[in-house]
Write a protein that binds this DNA or RNA. Structure first.
Lengths: 158, 158
DNA sequence: CAAACGCGGATAGAAAATGTCTGAGTTGAT
DNA sequence: ATCAACTCAGACATTTTCTATCCGCGTTTG
């Protein structure tokens, strides 16, 4: 059970975008994080389809958050990249074999699936409690108040 | 982010084993659940290596739980099959690019990784709170008290 | 010894993740 | 109007993982 590396990229990009004044091109985001531009572009498009970022085309285009960083949770980003499918997929093997569970019982998910879904709900709740703004605050606490000043400078001049 | 289908098989097998009197062969477990014997055998070997089940070789061999079903959590089974690696793998891209995070800061994981790990801890805690015995109780509640009687009968005669 | 069983490795196809490339369309500047 | 920079969508290639099968080997019981 592994999460795509694109999730890490996308969350980092959202933190950067939360500090930017205008649209930031994919090229710039890729350079800043030292990752492939073309592949990052895929993930940014997923964020765009999910409505988390807006893309502006043309000469001075790029990506910008569609709402304030307080209103974007880590869960939003994870779901945009990983999809909304639960990690556990019940194949109803209780209906197989010589003693299959019958129709009426199977109206609700089996106990195993319920336990798995409950755990995923707890996971999602934990991720929903952290916003991109929280992450940005954490970066400043970890690395100093000058970090985002330098970031904005690099984004402007680069 | 998807969980292997083997997890579902393995948990179902543990519930069956919790109701068995003696060792149950892989062939029997596969027949009961209507899945491939050779592939299920792989997962049973993983459970064995993780110490959740004991295998008896030879003519009347098979698998049996090593401890009581109360003492085996769903998390134990999931970790045995999926491995103990966290789903989120931080590649430290904050150390890349024109403004890399420096060594001292990177002594502890970045805020993004911390949020991800916290969510996985919540997920694990939820799974750890459910035992195989709880699942067996749930099956009886869902399908009636005769279910496991019939199961034991099929295991004995089959 | 033969039959039933678990164990480990080798193998292979399918699916998904990862990464690249190209062409079309859009926008601002000259 | 033209050009350059940029996004977007999709096609394509590569690599890894999942799923599944098979075989040989050692073990145990009858």
């Amino acid at each position: 059970m592994k999460m795509s590396a694109g999730v890490e990229w996308a969350v980092h990009c959202c933190v950067v975008l939360s500090q930017a004044d205008g649209p930031v091109p994919a090229q710039r985001l890729a350079d800043f994080h030292g990752v492939s531009r073309t592949y990052l572009a895929k993930h940014l498009q997923q964020l765009s389809r999910a409505g988390l970022v807006r893309s502006t085309e043309g000469r001075v285009g790029g990506y910008a958050l569609t709402r304030s960083a307080e209103e974007i949770s880590v869960l939003d980003v994870v779901l945009a990249i990983e999809g909304r499918e639960p990690a556990f997929r019940c194949t109803e093997i209780r209906q197989n074999g010589p003693l299959p569970a019958t129709g009426e019982v199977c109206r609700r998910p089996c106990g195993i699936a319920r336990a798995m879904y409950a755990a995923e709900d707890a996971w999602r709740a934990s991720l929903a409690a952290v916003s991109v703004a929280d992450l940005a605050t954490g970066v400043e606490e970890d690395t100093g108040a000058q970090t985002f000043v330098r970031l904005r400078g690099w984004l402007a001049t680069g």
